[in-house]
């Protein structure tokens, strides 16, 4: 079980392979990689995203989210990697990988981690376009996505 907050690029395939190595009884591996899109929310071409973060809290909060996922589903292992700093279109921002004996738990846990992370991990995106830089506004859809996990 691990969380990492870093500025460096990561290789999702290698991270996932490393996570799976040494585990037996893994029947399902689900990975989600979030990428930097080529356009800003306004539709304008994006030059880069800069992610600001509260690093100490980010690590603690991601650990709390991972612990909650492990309490809800029978996971064999999990990994969350989140970048900050300057990120170019096409580059990965976040990786969530979940390992479990069966697929349902791995899928659900990965989705749960992402939904929680979007609204509670202390990261803030700033978009750079030809018109300048602006902070990304939080999206109601992210709050709605989180809501379903508290229903029963």
């Amino acid at each position: 079980m691990a969380v990492r907050v870093q500025t460096d690029l990561f290789d999702a395939a290698r991270e996932t392979a490393d996570l799976g190595a040494g585990h037996v009884n893994v029947g399902a591996v689900v990975t989600f990689t979030g990428l930097c899109r080529p356009n800003a929310d306004s539709g304008a071409p994006l030059e880069a995203l800069t992610l600001e973060c509260y690093p100490e809290m980010a690590e603690e909060e991601l650990s709390r989210i991972e612990a909650e996922a492990r309490a809800r589903w029978p996971l064999i292992d999990a990994l969350i990697v989140h970048r900050h700093g300057r990120i170019r279109p096409g580059e990965p921002i976040v990786l969530v990988a979940t390992l479990s004996p069966h697929r349902a738990a791995a899928f659900a846990a990965a989705e749960f981690v992402m939904d929680y992370l979007k609204t509670s991990a202390p990261f803030w995106k700033r978009e750079e376009t030809a018109d300048g830089a602006s902070w990304v506004a939080a999206k109601t859809a992210d709050d709605d996505a989180l809501e379903r996990w508290s229903r029963g």
């Binding site: 992370l117 609204t119 202390p122 506004a137 939080a138």
Partner: peptide, 8 residues
Amino acid sequence: FFPPMTGG
């Protein structure tokens, strides 16, 4: 203190 989060 910070704005609503926009990571992920």
